[in-house]
Amino acid sequence: METTDRALSVRVNGEPVIGIVEPRTNLVDFLREKAGLTGTHTACHQGWCGSCTVLLDGDSVRSCLVLAVQADRCEVTTVEGVGGPDGTLSTLQEALIEHSGFQCGFCTPGFVVLGTEILAEARAGATFTRGELQRRLAANICRCTGYAGILAAVEAALKAVTAATHTTREVTP
């Protein structure tokens, strides 16, 4: 049978992942089934819920709306790549635990990645009002928490990051 399979190489969380896929394969299926990274979850496969959010060359995308072949030779960060290489949790991950920003945990990886992007923007100098944060977080759906814990966690992480950024700036002018 004729094959249209394509070979591709994606750098996922800093490590190369090489695979042969059908062109129709979603990035999320490639990450979960070829790269073996099951932290990225598919809750709708329709682009609405944001559970499958990953960073593609630094920008958040819904990996169910991206074809794996589109990520060829790109850098992908999944929830597994957010913490430190030694297993330490990021500020946001710690804050999500402290503020009960999850219950069943299924949407959590999407919020971790979305929040990581927000924090990266804050490190680069962006500021957010609560309303702006809520609008950003409205990209993803959580059915359990009522969002209160997630919002509190992102705000706490932002505060910590902003404080650290200011300190750094004072020390190294």
Binding site: L37, T38, L89, F102, F106, P109
Partner: peptide
């Protein structure tokens, strides 16, 4: 605090579709 926190925020939960 929840005992699941560190697992869930790392994406280390194990749901049915993660089982192959």
């Amino acid at each position: 605090r929840s005992r699941n926190g560190a697992r869930f925020v790392r994406g280390a939960g194990r749901y049915v579709d993660d089982i192959h």
